[in-house]
Amino acid sequence: MARFPVSLVETSSQGIVVFVSENNFSVADSAGKIIASTSESQANSDNVTKISGPSDVSSNPSDTTIRAASFSRDGQLFAICTADKGIMIYDTKTWTVQRQLKTEKRTNAICFDPQGAFLVTADKFGDSYRIPTVSEGPTEMLLGHVSILCSVDFSYGSPTYVLSCDRDEKLRVSKYPNAYNIEAFGLGHREFVTSVATAEFAPTVAVTGSGDGTVRLWRIATGELLQTIELAEYLRVYYENGKTLCGENTFHDRSAATERYGVLRVRAVEALGAFVVAVERIPALLVLPMAEDSGFGRPMVVDLEAVPTDVAALGDRMVVSFVPRVDQGALVTAIKRDGEGFGVDGGLARALAENVVTREAESVPEVQSIFVWGNKMFLERPQEENEDEDAE
């Protein structure tokens, strides 16, 4: 029997990991044991805290798919945003709701500011707001783009910058909290920018991933492009050996001869001094160690058993969720450093495979391509996609 995928993975500095699937999420400790869950079936287990999930508070549970999630830097808070414009902020000691509210527009991405005092949202109309996490204070406009916002993050060190990226190919660096002061733009991507990541081990730089088949390294304060990684150079082999297929003359792949590499996520792995990249449809991770602030070292490719949906760092390990298959038992796995390369962390991977369970499906659910929502040529999009966007 097939199962719905784990769509998002988030980890905290306290060594816990959250797995999101549809409108539920489960919390595991660093050994892979489930300790809290919004799912009734998992919360019925011994010593598992029942969390109030979005379906418990929404007036329309069928539309409460969790779209994004984030921990505060100290791990004390966790937040989700849902498809029905809901925001919920949790205290991670008790997994009780600290604050919940509705936004005016559908939120695409969220993150906490460095102090955890505010939750910053990024929405489909290009606006970013900040929400007080403890008090019932008002939501404040932070900044605006003229295109869909895809990802948002904060720099480390001082001064503090908020980094936002959008469907119109750019990275914006703004001072915080006075984000109307734009410090720099990172210009050079040729397609939508899906993910931005910063790291404490390299506080002067940021890494972005895009639908243009590149990962780029930027100097935060100036917007200077320091390095470009062409994903095809390292991942083309998956097309050549048949592990990744181009759809022939489909919307997702306009031509079978055109190989596309869309970055799903870029994450910092602090314990390894590296960034890790997950790419749509490619059953692998690309690990980019930092040689110094001005550049990457030798990229390393990590083979996976299936195509990833997300990746996050858990100490010196990487937790990966997969696009499900009928013949695939595990929905998630764990990767660790193994000599000069990387391999499966057998103990944690087995625990996660046993404990992380999602709802059964009659067939393998389709995971929508990021090239659908990332396509700016509106009239070329499938009709049902246009109708869905109009409805929002």
Rank of each mutant, 00 (worst) to 15 (best):
V48G: 01
G75P: 13
S39E: 13
D74F: 11
I87S: 03
T64N: 05
P114A: 04
I66C: 10
S55H: 06
A79W: 13
G86W: 02
R99C: 12
L101R: 07
D91R: 13
L77Y: 14
S45A: 07
M88I: 12
S72Q: 12
A79R: 10
P61T: 03
Q76S: 15
D113P: 10
G86V: 04
T49G: 00
S59N: 12
S37E: 09
P61G: 02
E40H: 05
P61D: 04
I110M: 05
C111T: 15
T65K: 10
D113A: 06
I110L: 11
K105Y: 04
T38V: 05
G86R: 05
P61L: 02
A36I: 08
T49H: 09
W95G: 10
K102R: 10
C81F: 03
I66V: 14
Q98D: 12
N60Q: 11
S52T: 15
A36D: 12
S52P: 02
L77M: 13
S58H: 09
S39V: 00
I34R: 03
K33E: 14
K105H: 08
V48Y: 04
P114C: 07
S72D: 15
N47S: 09
S41G: 00
S39Q: 11
T82A: 09
I87N: 05
V57N: 11
R67T: 15
G86N: 06
Y90S: 07
I35G: 00
F78I: 08
R99W: 10
S39H: 08
I110H: 06
K33I: 05
Y90N: 07
S58T: 15
M88E: 09
A83Y: 10
E40M: 01
S55N: 09
S58R: 04
Q42V: 08
F78C: 08
T65C: 01
R73E: 15
C81E: 13
E104H: 00
G53K: 04
V48T: 07
G75V: 13
Q42H: 02
Q76I: 08
A43D: 09
Q100A: 02
G75D: 13
Q100N: 11
L101G: 08
D56L: 03
E40P: 04
C111A: 12
S55M: 10
K33G: 00
N44Y: 00
W95L: 03
A69D: 11
P61H: 03
A109D: 12
S45Y: 07
L101D: 14
I35V: 14
S58E: 12
K105F: 07
N108Y: 02
G53A: 08
R106H: 02
Q100Y: 07
T49E: 12
T38F: 03
T94D: 12
F112S: 06
K85A: 01
P114H: 09
D91T: 15
A68I: 04
R106Y: 03
D113W: 11
S59Q: 11
S52Y: 02
T103K: 02
S70I: 03
S58F: 09
F71Y: 13
T38P: 05
D63Q: 08
I80Q: 06
L77G: 11
D46K: 07
S52K: 12
D74R: 09
